[in-house]
Write a protein that binds this DNA or RNA. Sequence first.
RNA 1: GUCUUGAUAGCUCAGCUGGAUAGAGCGUUAGCCUCCGGAGCUAAAGGUCAAGAGUUCGAAUCUCUUUCAAGACACCA
Length: 566
Amino acid sequence: MITTKIANVIKEIGKKLNMELENINVIESNRKDLCDYQFDGTFQLAKTLHKSPLEIGQMLVEEIKKHPEYSHLFQNVEVIPPGFLNFTLSSEIINEILNEMIQNDKFGITLPKKQKIFMDYGGPNIAKPLHVGHLRSAIVGEAIKRMLKYLGHDVIADVHLGDYGLQIGEVIYGLKEKNISLEDITLQDLETIYPWMNERIKNDEIVKEQCAKITKDLQEGQEEYHAYFEKIKKISGDDILRIYKYLDVSFDLWLGESDAYPYIEPLTKELENKNLLTESEGAKVVFIAKESDKKEMPPLVYQKKNKAYLYGTTDLATIYDRIHKYHPDTFIYLTDYRQKLHFESVFRVCEKLGYTKDASFEHIGFGTVNGKDGKPFKTREGKSPKLDSLFEEVKETFKKANEKNQDMSEKDLDILVNAIIKFADLQNSPEKDYIFDITKFSNLTGKTGPYILYTYLRIESILKKESNSLKELNQEIYDSIDRELRLKIIELEKTLNYAVKMRSPAILANFLYELCVNMNAFYEKNHINNLREIEKKENWLLLFQLANKIVKEMLLLLGIYLPERM
RNA sequence: GUCUUGAUAGCUCAGCUGGAUAGAGCGUUAGCCUCCGGAGCUAAAGGUCAAGAGUUCGAAUCUCUUUCAAGACACCA
């Protein structure tokens, strides 16, 4: 990376001048009119060296200019009061980096040490159909998975269906009360029964107890309930699968809470052997409070008074299974942030079990998708928009936006719908709530999916008109827009690494948008196809080939594909 | 009550591992089609970064206090 290269030069100089430079942080300039990269360490050094930052900067610059690599790396290095060190890159080094990106797989990005990562996202509840609230976990999770895989990690994704908790007991109770026989259950029934039952058990303790009993009996293998459970899982699962397929969200494991059941027994033994299970108020719990805690930390309830198990139990049993079967280095969970405390509890039990010695556990909590009033959609009121209608509406909006869109193939339209929804979603920080507004997804201009796709297609159409045999860029940069584009491209590695580190596809999405802005500005000002200067033309074509390849591969990481035409 | 998040342009949001002049999109205003696809491009207007204090050479970013909002707090998930 170029920042590392600059940092290394500074480090060498620092040693030579006996300056104590630790953690040299070279950053992208925030004054692009002055330089490309900057180093602000002179301010920290001022104290220990008893010199002004400006003086220190001058000393550094003087030595940097003597460095054997100087003219190779830089066009200019200067210090500007009160002591900023400003670096302007040479065309030579910029093109050297670009050539490496052109010639190497994955743009020559240095891959990190390979990790085995277990990802748990999606997490749909089989008692109810998917709605807009489920969009984020699927989209963000899928993008994180793809980014991790791109960097060479071994990722195992599990959908982890919510399929064995009280909600199933509720639905079975409701189905039986309404005399809906096993064969006749429809998706429609599930859609209405869950919200209805949920509302009932709030006010009716007796019904709630009966639902809990059904849940417990189901967990213990009662045959009739199990048949219901299988049927519900099939109906709901098919629908979930259909939606995920549309969004191109996929999982290596299609398991759920119920699949963790066989591991509860060995896990219980392990907990008992380590003296971690305690009887409390009739339930079996694991105490997890620490002396250092500032807040109250309730114990994790492992088994209810009525002997039924809870989601903490199944989560732990799932971890037990994964640890023994796959030995992952990292566990990543994506859920609603309201489950933060739950996962903290689960991870604390893991710590007590000694699991955290070999694996790290991360919980990424994302915000709620709210209605226009800023309040979460309530599933039990059945009011949250269904994903199907969202897809349909976005598609209609897009078709209406332009006459030629009506001739687009169904496949391309679906690609567009995906691009619009995903890009709109990925722009927001995952951990914040956001207001769901269909008009947000109707916007097709500006910072949107279609803008990115449009840019790509326009560049493609320029590239298609020419044949280019050039394999390597020369050392020239032809104008300022050209230079900006090249500088943006070389930021890819840093950006992707940062996005993965922060588990934030939004960072990548934003980079992609900025790259497209640069590309747009470029082809608006510089025409390529009718260019007479052959060398310039070939270099620009090669540059655009690289840029478009980046757009294509990075879009893929976000789960966005490219249409034939639009 | 305790704890956790959050508050940035009219709207929706970036920026938060401290740096120079606060960034987009939408909306508003003014330009740009003899030339590779105008879902585009070039500009302008729009900000006491909730308020106050502190740390620092330097704070939207770190710390504390206050206000407002959302959320969690053992047998739901």
